[in-house]
Design a protein around this nucleic acid. Structure first.
Lengths: 213, 213, 213, 213
DNA sequence: CATGAATGAGCCTTCATTCAT
DNA sequence: TATGAATGAAGGCTCATTCAT
């Protein structure tokens, strides 16, 4: 009780900012960036219009910030997951596990609609875009690291560089995610990702073997 | 007696419609749907604003129509290309050839920016989206046909259905195209598509072999 | 009767533009540029807000245009007046007559408030200003011409160039006008202008004489 | 006992007020009244927004106060200067000296931009204007005193009253200052003021002489 | 069919001022 | 006194669409 006075002014302000942010997030997810205006956001947050501009420079900057949060969050999650895997796990299994994890994260903590907005944004040329030019750059790096480790221990053989293989993986995941965004709910991201990556891993094995081509 | 002026009037009208359509197309490609307004279009076409609404119900409907044209056009091109291939071409080679052809079409006759707009539109939720909800459906069908033929002649073996394999192909192409849109010009679509499909085909081979899994 | 159909669409449009312009003019004069907004203008004109932007690019551009009209109008009036004076009128009398005429024009067809806005604008640095950098440039030229004629016929003697003398006249008129804007109605522009110019003319005579300094 | 902390608190408050005032002054001079907002001022002063309203009732009142300071300051400076002149200096020379002094003050301690803002304000109608409705009233008085002294000693003759002559001087200075504000740096205020006043003084001499008119 | 003036809802942003802490 | 979060009215401008000629 007396929750009110428990909050310092600073905390109160942070709470307001959070209310606005959360409202914006919800509404953006529900209706897309362009269909939501500042009035909607502040009304939903229960604050005055001016308050929005106390906490955020502009609508576009809020969007950019929000997108960055998503990107960072997922990147961190992926890497943490990989580092939690047993070090002696075969590279092949690690890649499959990561593919599954990515699907889990995208499905559960981002969601289809939101992911669609993320991808739309990345395809766009607006000022928003420049805030997130490199969504997936960290994923590239992560795949590089995993494959590089496999190549260096000779557990994994391929005429391709770790970077090239990582590119195939990222490209594949782009396609999987896109297809999911567009076909949901008729496309189970995790299931498809695992199948697709299995084929890809087979392909890379075969590609590296002498009898190929 | 009046036929001539009737016809010329009809022709005139068609010409006006075409002028507007072509202007809209050019401008949309250059700047995106949202950055182009009716004023821009009619000014570029050299006609009056009212003429736009004589020939098109609304901006959104024009966009939908235009997208459909694109979809049909490319679909036809792909199928015509396949039908032009020698009937005895191995399925594997046909798939690779088609992958290359698709890259050619997308690169040359659609372009990176435009493709991005198409993909953005597909990811969106607006009324525009419904116009192209089935972009690539024909491609699915085409891959299905190719693979189905291979499976039925036993030239190609796989525990997967033709439909499933087609889905892997389409998904892969989605990723390739997306990556190209985002990374251009540092990502050569055709080269990457051929490499990626080669791996995928290897993977499918291996996947189908008894020693796999 | 049937006044309506007498007007072609073009005339109708011109009438609307004029209504907006006239409303803006009135309101600006009454309340100043900054105290009047687009809503006020269109409401006063009895048209929709969008109509304003059909006829004028922006509020600032309208203001600039309006100011230019004033400037041109007065310049033309001054020169026409001078050309209407008898060619054999002594320069001294011509200058005095012009000084009086200027006062008449400013007083009657511009008005005190308006003149104040003009001067304010000229002192400002806003985008409006650049539209009228040279209010009074034509007046400079006119004085130059009058004095130059007097100097060339030796009717008028001075060690100063026509340009320098013109500058003294223009400067003096600036002061008279400014004082009028600020002191009105306690400062009779015409009376003061005539007195001041008489002194100035005497001063120039004396200045040119050998016994001066 | 408490005197010290009382005083330091008072001093602190005064210091804060002064910081705000100085910041506002600087920014107003640099960018004009309307282009500077309270946020700019307090940020520049390094205090909180609320502090502004602790020390000043409103933005407009601060502006009014500031203008008054300017007016008083310059008026005092002019009078002090005159009083510092040798009492037996001829009126004519005193007037010229004062004209030069005014130019010095305006040029050095007010500046062109600032003077423009002052003049703009004076031409305006806002509540600000009332704060400086009497800018130059003291200058009137000063000129009156100087000329009155000359007239009373018969060192100076004129059919005009001291007040009327003062008005011509003030009016002339208005014009000079305005022209400077608008033409700077192509118009050297001091040089032009001295020349213009010389002509004016000649004119007044001649005007007073029997052979004039 | 063609024209282009007219419409008016919609949107982002600014800013002086208030007030609880 | 000092703080700074909160307020909400105000304002300039865009744009798809309509409709009389």
């Amino acid at each position: 009780m007396q929750e009110k006075s428990f909050k310092s002014r600073r905390e109160q302000a942070a709470a307001t900012k959070q209310k606005i942010y959360a409202s914006a997030e919800q509404l953006f997810l529900r209706h897309g960036f362009d269909a939501v205006n500042i009035d909607d956001i502040v009304k939903h947050a229960g604050v005055a219009k001016g308050s929005f501009y106390v906490h955020f420079e502009s609508k576009n900057l809020l969007i950019a910030t929000m997108i960055n949060h998503y990107v960072w969050k997922t990147d961190d999650e992926y890497r943490a997951y990989w580092e939690s895997l047993p070090p002696d796990l075969p590279v092949r299994d690690a890649v499959l596990a990561l593919a599954g994890k990515i699907a889990d994260v995208i499905t559960a903590s981002i969601g289809c609609k939101n992911m669609g907005i993320l991808y739309q944004t990345q395809l766009g040329e607006s000022n928003r875009t420049h805030a997130m030019i490199d969504y997936n750059r960290a994923l590239y790096q992560l795949f590089c690291d995993i494959i590089g480790k496999g190549l260096s221990t000779h557990e994994f053989r391929s005429p391709l560089s770790a970077y090239e293989i990582a590119r195939h993986f990222v490209t594949a995941y782009r396609g999987l995610t896109f297809e999911w965004c567009v076909r949901d709910p008729d496309f189970d991201l995790k299931e498809q990702a695992l199948r697709h990556f299995e084929i890809l891993l087979h392909g890379l094995d075969a590609y590296g073997s002498p009898h190929s081509t």
